[in-house]
């Protein structure tokens, strides 16, 4: 990434926005547990005009849903730019490359490379997992296809997919000291942008981004901070205890519990807006990733009240 280099041709609209130094806003769309494309169309309608790109999750929490490729195509048809999530849990290297080619042929230009939630969390814990390559090597595979025009076997592709490559980072997982090193490895592997785990522990996030800045990493990758509006103290407690890699400090849980129940949603909104305000001012943060899980109607309000767009 080099914002000075005006000769860089953007790979996607999201890339273009980041190249222009605009504060990017991405959202999230979980495909339905069924084949109903109307579900995607409805979510797209709620998000359109508020966000620059929308992540389409890939069988998140290891529960079978419409594929992220199909979901992404439906979003394109609805006039939104998708970020196709792709996990290495369910596909070997042959299927991964094949789906990347297919996705690119359908107009998908952003990919987010992930490990995937372990299948033991899902509705079919008896399933076999794949994990042929890890998420870091998926990043490298997509990058190599883009840069060399060849697949992993070295075969020259007639049209090589040129995707804008993302990965996740969790500044709240352990061991903390090595989280920045792992970010550096993702950059070495060829990642262009990072979307982080939901930020509630701002002190820890600031420490992480400071370490990343000191290593010069924020010059090499666009970092989008993740946020999720809380609905209740119960939801905060549940996420903190049950969602892998989630860190919600006690004071946030207490704050959610300190207001009357009917005001909890507004309190969650305020926390979310305060987080976004801090992210906007933070050196090394290029945007925000709003994960309003099955609450897409809230995204427009967040964007408007945070003064994010247009």
């Amino acid at each position: 990434m080099s914002n000075d280099d005006m000769t860089i041709k953007p790979l996607s609209k999201l890339h273009e926005i980041l190249l222009n130094g605009e504060f990017a806003v991405t959202g999230e769309c979980g495909p339905p547990r069924g084949a109903n494309r109307e579900v995607i169309a409805k979510k797209a309608g709620l998000l359109k005009g508020f966000i620059d790109a929308v992540n389409v999750t890939d069988n998140q929490t290891a529960i079978v849903r419409m594929s992220s490729i199909a979901g992404a195509v439906h979003l394109i048809e609805a006039g939104l730019e998708p970020v196709m999530q792709m996990v290495v849990r369910d596909r070997n290297r042959i299927a991964l490359q094949s789906d990347i080619l297919g996705a690119y042929s359908m107009g998908i230009r952003n990919i987010l490379c992930l490990s995937g939630d372990h299948q033991s969390f899902g509705s079919q814990p008896d399933a076999l997992n794949v994990f042929d390559i890890d998420s870091l090597n998926l990043v490298r595979t997509v990058k190599d296809m883009r840069e060399t025009g060849k697949d992993m076997s070295g075969f020259e592709l007639d049209i090589a997919p040129a995707m804008f490559i993302g990965a996740a980072a969790n500044p709240f997982a352990d061991p903390f000291e090595y989280r920045v090193l792992r970010l550096a490895k993702k950059i070495d592997a060829g990642v262009d942008f990072i979307q982080t785990q939901c930020i509630y522990n701002m002190a820890r996030f600031k420490q992480w981004i400071k370490m990343a800045r000191e290593e010069g990493l924020t010059e090499k990758v666009y970092i989008l901070g993740g946020v999720t509006p809380l609905k209740s103290a119960g939801m905060a407690r549940y996420m903190n205890n049950k969602v892998a890699g989630m860190d919600i400090p006690d004071e946030i849980i207490k704050r959610m519990g300190s207001v009357p129940k009917e005001d909890a949603i507004e309190e969650g909104m305020k926390i979310c807006l305060e987080t976004i305000a801090e992210l906007k001012e933070l050196d090394g943060v290029s945007g925000v990733h709003i994960m309003a899980i099955e609450w897409e109607e809230k995204v427009g309000e967040i964007v408007k009240r945070a003064g994010l767009k247009k």
Binding site: S115, G116, D134, A168, D174, R182, A244
Partner: peptide, 17 residues
């Protein structure tokens, strides 16, 4: 997850997700 470049985001207090 057989991650060869770990740890993944689910590592917490030295334990697996």
């Amino acid at each position: 997850k057989r991650v060869l470049n770990g740890p993944c985001g689910g590592s917490s207090n030295g334990k697996c997700e």
